[in-house]
């Protein structure tokens, strides 16, 4: 599958100028890609546009030549840097996970999510445990692309390698495209083949 951004232009506040101007990119699901660049240059904004959270002021996002669907689960899913800010604090983890619709038990098991965590609230879990839920939630049946925006910066090395080894295997098996943002050169050389530099 092919995810394309065509001439994307975006500004949060037009008076302060554009964050993105005429950005175009093509990402093939067979080759994990990394987006690199200094902070504040709009990496996360670009991801939000690619995954349908933001609409660009000009340009379009196409998945295999078609625009992203307006209803239902978005085939381009994003996992965020701070899992504690990506979940509803008033929902138990079981309900949070149900947001992802039809998450296979296999995924939950391979991510090391324990049954006991399901009945807890987000503030009762550590960052690494919470991030596992956020990843499982993004791996629903219809996911075609996964955008990982600094998903392991706040995790220790062991948790980071657990999560990434799982993600690499899972995306490869299911043919899911992977887009990675990270400042760690060592990590990128392990997970992404291609670099898109800002």
């Amino acid at each position: 599958m092919l995810l394309e951004g065509k001439n994307l232009t975006f500004a949060y506040d037009r008076k302060k100028g554009n964050i993105l101007t005429n950005v175009s990119l093509r990402i093939d699901s067979r080759e994990p890609a990394a987006i690199v660049g200094p902070s504040g240059f709009g990496k996360t904004t670009l991801c939000k546009i690619l995954s349908g959270y933001l609409r660009p002021q000009a340009g379009e996002v196409l998945l295999d030549g078609k625009p992203l669907p307006k209803k239902g689960c978005c085939p381009v899913q994003m996992v965020w840097q701070n899992p504690e800010r990506a979940v509803n604090p008033r929902l138990r983890m079981r309900a949070t996970l149900a947001d992802g619709q039809q998450i296979e038990d296999r995924i939950i098991r391979e991510l090391g999510i324990e049954e006991d965590w399901m009945n807890r609230y987000p503030q009762e879990l550590s960052g690494g445990e919470l991030q596992r839920f956020c990843i499982a939630r993004a791996l629903g049946r219809d996911t075609k692309f996964l955008i990982a925006d600094e998903i392991s910066t706040m995790l220790d090395m062991i948790t980071q390698s657990q999560i990434w080894n799982f993600l690499l295997k899972e995306t490869k098996e299911r043919g899911i495209g992977l887009i990675v943002i990270s400042h760690s050169e060592a990590l990128l050389s392990r997970v992404a083949g291609r670099r898109l530099t800002f």
């Binding site: 090391g112 062991i158 390698s161 392990r190």
Partner: peptide, 18 residues
């Protein structure tokens, strides 16, 4: 040692469990 082995530059090997 497990922490060392899990670093991306030293093998990226995960240790199971939490």
């Amino acid at each position: 040692r497990a922490l060392w082995r899990a670093m991306p530059q030293n093998g990226f090997q995960p240790l199971p469990g939490t």
